[in-house]
Design a protein around this nucleic acid. Structure first.
Lengths: 363, 363
DNA sequence: CCTAACTCTGAAATCGATTTCAGAAATCGA
DNA sequence: TCGATTTCTGAAATCGATTTCAGAGTTAGG
């Protein structure tokens, strides 16, 4: 007689209430229930309330699959980051998610481990899922990835960089310019013997590559081009920062300033410097990039570049929300970075000093 | 007259290739194409290859909405973490995502900012999305949240804790036992004047609360119960670790061991200790919890408890995949933590030393 | 009081893939 | 060679919500 199983064997206990159930209870058609939910203003208030009551009574929620199928919109956005282990990305993703959530979107997350092939696969999976928008990191993507995006016709934005090729809009900072400024600052302090530690091992890490280029350019412009051995490549671990510094100082013991493309590397370098008995900044100035929470708490506090990760995340969310809605969107957004001068950097020891306007500290 | 806009204003350019298109090209029925994709083994190899070729030619991908509608499975899992800013959660989420991805699942991510109301809202949104499984953090959840889960009939698992109430399975470590062991270790070293710094400000942070209880229990058992002023409550920031230590030492200048419920707090405490001119571990032993990457790189390296975050993430993924498939699943999984003794902890200065078997270091 | 102009609601088609059911083709044994 | 299995494929129903189209009901104007 009654069709409801007394107790479902294992799976869903209730067969899930559907729009038709609500319609029957409320003595209206499914169409009306749908209207109540989607266009409340075109339903007679009295009727609307009655239907609403039954919706609540039955705790009805519409099936998003059916909804998506009919409407063609999933109300879903995907993001692919290299890794979540880096606070800078975690922060951006968190901001992204928060903003999307406010607008009724949900965020799919995936990570590529700095591997372009994996990025492509994850993107494929996301597109199959019917996402309405996609957030990427950086400008270096395979061409097949770009064509996949284009073919799918999904709005996309790439983050943490100021511009990306292939007509993809970007939101982020000008990485090269940031390290260029940082390098110029160190030059002004009077440094002449530089070293760079860059996590450019991963092919897709164009942020660090741009940062390295910023360093190189500034130094070339100053007539102090970096020799290959003055640049140590690393991945993004703290331990690599340590070994990189060791190697750098082995090759160039007289280095007075080390510029790292990441705070993690810089913190590793500082740890190693301490272990080697080198005073920072008296003997060696060290700078980082990202301004992670720890940077300010180091001893000495780390000079670095602050990246507005949360703002990038929010901006990416806003961009996609607008793009999906068909609203006009900016081509690209360049956000300001901020050089944070702390005490891990100082003029070099008064030795040979071609400083233009460096003030000596411990004269 | 004609309803189709000549050129889509902005959105999808191609009408998206559907299964029927593939079927027509390949001269088979949609059913066969579907079978090729879902049960390749029941289709004649020759035919299967032919269909496959056309699938690739047309770059066909099935519409997940339609798929989900028909099958009732979204192949989607949701996770709600307090925050991604903590490496320990980011690591777990990353492992979770990787494992899910291997099995064709996609991960929805949301964060609660340690707010139970927000957690509930995010869960609601995820459930409306039709997720097949949900991952939570910790055991403290509102009862309405639990009933929502139950009513939705969605498999759930909670993480980073050894057990949770309300019949919810858990995968994680025994937090209380871990700090109890840590405290006992410090007792064995000969410490008698303890302090604790715990991030128990957020009501929902039962991990840190359990850790604090572990400390308290061990000390009570040793006849050295912690006074209220020997416990400083904090949130999860590094800066709070600093101020907490300062406050602790203001109230109890003779403290010789400080146990923190988080590495972040411990690192903050170490920074402050250094600033105050206190030698670690000679004057003050400090311990943390989580074993973040930085812990090992500190000076001195931090004694802490290693939490298998990646394993937790993977385990949660496996649990849900099985639960969704209807396979038998374990009730709960308790993973081993690992006490990592590094040099931030040592016997107290030879002062008054009731050590049972502490070896003196600098005799 | 009757028709015109609206407003509101319901029936039914639709989105795209999956799967049951049954029939066609192929394989096998006699 | 013929019928009995077995294997494989296709037609059609189905998942649940949305939305068009048209008709029912209501109000207003003449």
């Amino acid at each position: 007689m009654d069709k409801k199983p007394v107790i479902a064997p294992k799976g869903r206990q209730q067969p899930r209430v559907k729009i038709e159930d609500v319609a029957r209870k409320a003595n209206v058609s499914p169409a009306t229930v749908s209207r109540v939910l989607n266009h409340p203003d075109i339903v007679r208030p009295e009727l609307r309330d009655r239907v609403m009551r039954h919706i609540n009574d039955l705790a009805y929620t519409r099936d998003s699959a059916a909804r998506a199928l009919k409407s063609g919109r999933m109300r879903t956005v995907g993001v692919i980051v290299p890794t979540l282990a880096l606070g800078i990305f975690a922060e951006g993703v968190e901001a992204l998610q928060n903003r999307l959530s406010e607008s009724g979107y949900t965020l799919f997350i995936a990570n590529s481990q700095y591997d372009q092939r994996r990025e492509f696969q994850e993107l494929q999976s996301l597109i199959e899922r019917g996402i309405d928008g996609i957030v990427l990191v950086g400008a270096s993507h395979g061409r097949e990835l770009r064509s996949l995006i284009e073919q799918a016709g999904v709005p996309v934005i790439t983050t943490y960089v100021a511009k990306a090729g292939g007509g993809i809009p970007a939101i982020g900072i000008d990485n090269e310019s940031a390290t260029r400024e940082m390098t110029e600052y160190l030059l002004r302090l009077g440094h002449v013997r530089f070293g760079a530690i860059a996590n450019v091992v991963a092919a897709s890490n164009d942020r660090s590559r741009a940062r390295l280029e910023g360093i190189q350019r500034a130094l070339s412009d100053a007539g102090l081009p970096l020799k290959p051995t003055q640049t140590v490549k690393a991945d993004y671990s703290l331990a690599q920062g340590r070994s990189a510094l060791r190697q750098l100082l082995t090759d160039h013991p007289d280095t007075t300033a080390v510029i790292c493309t990441t705070d993690t590397l810089a913190i590793g370098a500082m740890a190693e410097a301490r272990k080697m008995g080198l005073a920072v900044p008296a003997t060696l100035s060290i700078t980082g990039f990202d301004d992670v929470e720890l940077a300010a708490q180091m001893d000495p506090p780390l000079t670095t570049v602050s990246v507005p990760a949360a703002e990038i995340g929010r901006g990416a969310a806003d961009y996609l929300i607008n793009a999906i809605a068909g609203s006009p969107v900016p081509r690209s957004v360049v956000l300001p970075y901020r050089l944070v001068m702390r005490s891990s950097s100082a003029p070099p020891r008064p030795n040979f000093r071609p400083a233009r306007r460096g003030r000596s500290r411990d004269h």
